[in-house]
Simulated assay, not measured.
Amino acid sequence: MPAPPTDTDDRALPVSDSQTFARAFKDLRDGFGQRQLWLSLGWQDIKQRYRRSVLGPFWITIATGFQAAAMGILYAALLDLPLKEFLPYVTVGLIMWNLIAASILEGSEVFIANEGLIKQLPSALSVHVYRLVWRQILFFAHNLLIYVVMLVAFGVWRNLHWTVVLAIPGLALLVLNAMWVSIVFGIFSTRYRDIAPILGSMTLMLFVLTPIMWTTKTLEAQGGQVADRAKLAELNPTFHYLEIVRAPLLGEDQHAYHWYIVLAITAVGWIVAILAMRSYRARVPYWV
């Protein structure tokens, strides 16, 4: 009679491969391969939100335009800044911020919101992340109409030069970051439901601390301690994400260190996301 397997016996019970890097990467590949599903679901999300509306998704553009106009006019008067320069600055910043904030807030609930599909639909977990990011890209595309209007109305096009093409890789980096943010926050918010409210408060705080309604140039122009305080904005990561897209879209000078910081955060973020997918991907259906 053969001896029972021991701890050191190679014939011991096989270990499940559900918590391996191979399965984590396979989930991402399979999810991307199901793009017909998440492309359709993302578009249906927008249609459902504006069902029976005459203007449909263009209400996104109208709401963002009115918000940017109100903020731009108010703070231009408070800070004594020329409206022709400040309003495009605020508008582009707000458009980019909506993409960043949605990635954090909606990303933290991406799996909770899709509880039914996760339990019933046999698909990769990353499908829901791709769906969320695709939906935010569609929102962003609608809001770009405001930018096109500003190019003409405020003469922004006169300031543009070849560096405007850098907005494309900048936007690609934002999308990559939206994905890892949704994966990491989505997984841990599913396990610990207190994380989502905390992220909501944190996002509101970041909005105030990020140069959207104010500019670092205004503070630096005052000199002294006020100028030194402007450097505190460099500690805010969302500032760097804004600058790699906003600066080229407005024809402003580019600073390479913004790109270095964003690239470093992107690399670290994806490492954390892959680790989270490896360790907890199989547990999400039970946590929701």
Rank of each mutant, 00 (worst) to 15 (best):
Y260L: 13
T266M: 09
K231T: 13
E252Y: 10
A247P: 02
Y260Q: 13
H255V: 02
R281L: 07
H258G: 11
L235K: 14
H240C: 07
G251F: 01
H240R: 04
V226F: 09
N236W: 08
V272A: 04
V268W: 00
R281M: 05
V268K: 02
A221S: 08
R229G: 15
E243V: 01
A276L: 05
P237L: 13
A247R: 01
R246G: 00
A247V: 03
P248Y: 01
E252K: 10
V268P: 01
L249N: 03
R281H: 02
A221N: 06
Q225C: 15
H240N: 12
Y260I: 10
I244N: 01
L235R: 14
A264F: 10
P237C: 12
L249Q: 03
I261V: 14
A227T: 07
L263Q: 06
I274W: 04
G223T: 02
A276V: 00
A256I: 10
Q222G: 13
P237T: 10
L275F: 11
L242C: 06
R278M: 07
T238Y: 06
E252Q: 12
A230L: 07
A247I: 03
A267I: 04
Y257T: 14
I261G: 08
H255F: 08
H258I: 09
G223V: 03
L235M: 13
K231G: 12
K231I: 12
E220N: 08
Q254A: 13
S279K: 12
E243C: 01
W270I: 00
A233H: 09
M277K: 04
R246A: 03
L263N: 04
G269T: 01
I265R: 07
H258F: 13
V268D: 02
R229V: 15
A276W: 00
T266H: 08
E220Q: 07
I274Q: 05
V245N: 00
L275I: 07
L235E: 13
Q254T: 13
G223H: 03
L275G: 09
Y241S: 08
T266Q: 05
L235D: 06
A230I: 04
L249F: 05
R246Y: 00
R278N: 05
I265H: 06
Q254Y: 11
A233F: 10
A221Q: 10
A267H: 00
A264D: 09
T238K: 07
Q222T: 15
Y257I: 14
G223I: 06
L275N: 07
N236C: 12
V226L: 11
R229M: 15
E243Q: 04
A267R: 00
E220G: 14
A273Q: 00
Y280A: 10
